[in-house]
Amino acid sequence: MIIGRDLTRIYGMGAVKVRALNGVSVKIQKGDFVGIMGPSGSGKSTLLHMFGLLDRPTSGTILIDGVDAGTLDERARTQFRLRRLGYVFQDYALVPELTAKENVYLPSMARGMTAQECTLACSEILTLFGLGNRIHHLPGEMSGGEQQRVAIARALVNRPTLLLADEPCANLDSQNSKIILDLFQRLNRDLHQTIVMVSHEEWHKKYFDRIISMKDGVIEEEVNRSEGGELTPSP
């Protein structure tokens, strides 16, 4: 599903070089709910940007659904993001001039769905997310938790093969965080949505099937959830 091989990302081409990723190889299977954890500055976001085709690795290759991302030009990458990827940012990143519904509507409209299909998909997903009565609110008129749910709805409206979320709960209290995580879990279990999520909260661990721990730009440890439900380090 996602295969990253020997990924490196080096910032600053001058004298001071930061190796944000320093040779990362990962495989993520369809239907996985993967958590990427690790201390601040360990390269979690950088890795997620690679998966989300928001940035290009300095070296190494990424295959998503068998497509080598490195071979795509800017336009094709944009199309790929639109049709196959959903990205949730830490700070929601909604378009402030668009209402909840319009924010969600936008990607499906860009995909060429008819107005009717868009409206239907939007209302359905917003209702599912418990935002039925916030449809016509602008982002500025919603709480952080609500905004983040709208952002997730926007990421999911085109039924992406891969949902990426970079610390989606960082700005939320634990109650709202739980709502988001439960939502992710439901999407993963009921719809087999593949999810890769960055987090550094210990208590999030119980939601993940797999945890990739990073440190200094490399993968330090990978743990998988066994049949029994315990987390055990993979060989």
């Binding site: 989300g52 928001l54 800017e74 336009r75 944009t78 199309q79 790929f80 993001r81 639109l82 049709r83 990827l85 990205y87 940012f89 990143a93 909604l94 378009v95 402030p96 001039e97 936008l106 990607p107 860009a110 926007r154 990421a155 085109n158």
Partner: peptide, 16 residues
């Protein structure tokens, strides 16, 4: 600026 970045990130083409 930020909004333009977001639009591009969610797959809205630059030409749009």
């Amino acid at each position: 600026r930020k909004q333009i970045g977001i639009l591009k990130a969610i797959g809205i083409d630059r030409s749009i």
